[in-house]
Simulated scan of single mutants.
Amino acid sequence: MYTGFPHDRRFMLYSISKDKNMHIAEFTEMCLFTTAFVDGSSSPSSPKKFTVTYTKDHAFANPDQKITDATPLEIDLAPDTHGLDEFQITMHSSPTVSYDMGATYNEWFSARFGYQVKLLYIGENRRKVLGNMPPSVSGRQRDEQSQGTGATAGAGGSSWLSSITSTTSSVVGSLLGSAKQYEGEDAGLTFADVAPYLVISTRSWENAQQRLPAGESMDISKFRPNIIVEGAAGEFDEDFWGELQIGSQGAKIVLTQNCARCNSLNVDYSTGKVGESEAGKILKKLNSDRRVDPGAKWSPVFGRYGFLAKVPEGKTAAEIKVGDEVKVVRRNTARTSFGMLLSHCSIS
């Protein structure tokens, strides 16, 4: 639960020729694969497997190479890692050990991509949360800003240098330890980018949609959220959300930093390539007024990264489900400033 919803982002594809993990911003054809849970016979609410389906009849990189077997690939949601080869992986500067799922899976994907790839599973391994993304670091930074000891992120007149200084002091303070405990549990990462949860609002999505001409649409799944909130007070109101309470059981999500967007928004899901219509230019359209984070000043902001608040000892985690009421229980007075570029700093 602290590393995200069950089964969320536990698998990854890896390009052998480019020697790197695959993200849709660079490997745009990844969108041609769709997934679905397979209901377990004994407990339909707890699936044991999922399927992957390829939506084309030919290998993406070799259109003349036809796919004769359109059968979806079935994969265990929690495969036995005993006997699987370990594979070192680094994602967004955060390394971990993963497991190579083996020839059957690798060959199925490779035949459809048209080049050699591996399917990796993270198992019980985790990646470190870096920079000022962890709740403890962002919390210290927020306190420093409110006390006037650091730059106010996003405030008029604050400089890039002052933002870096504030972030640095927060990171150093976290590494050295602090008596104050902050909400939000950092239990590491699976293959999610930089935090377990990503929250967006439908009001903001509607704003993106309105930037396109009639007849074109912006698929909300392109923003890759795992929590979508309806009924926000306004467009991009989530820029200032600090903490959410979800559902009658009071689950809390602590939002620490903004999500800076990339070329993945421009991908046409029907072709696996960057779109040729206005929808294929949505990143540029958002750049016109959404470059609002001095810590990611070349990218538009859309959504907030978050962490589940710690569950009190003796209690079980609160359930979150579609349709739950969402309350903003803490708002930030200014936008936060992304500080992932400090992920390599060290104390000696």
Rank of each mutant, 00 (worst) to 15 (best):
T53K: 15
F37L: 13
F50R: 05
K66R: 15
D57L: 10
P44D: 03
T35N: 03
P63G: 09
K56H: 10
G40N: 11
K56W: 09
F37D: 11
T55L: 15
H58G: 05
S46G: 03
N62A: 11
K56D: 06
K48N: 13
T53Y: 00
S41L: 12
S45E: 14
P63I: 10
P47N: 03
Q65D: 07
K66A: 11
A36R: 12
D39W: 04
D57V: 10
H58P: 08
K48E: 06
V52T: 08
D39Y: 10
S43E: 05
A36G: 02
T51H: 01
P44W: 07
S41H: 04
D64F: 12
D64E: 12
S41T: 11
K56Q: 12
H58M: 06
S46A: 09
P47K: 01
S45L: 13
A61S: 15
V52W: 01
S43P: 01
V38G: 11
F60A: 05
A61T: 01
N62P: 00
T35V: 14
A36L: 03
D57H: 14
S46K: 15
A61V: 10
G40A: 13
Q65M: 12
A59D: 00
D39Q: 14
S43I: 07
S46M: 14
S45M: 11
Y54T: 10
D39R: 15
P47V: 06
N62W: 13
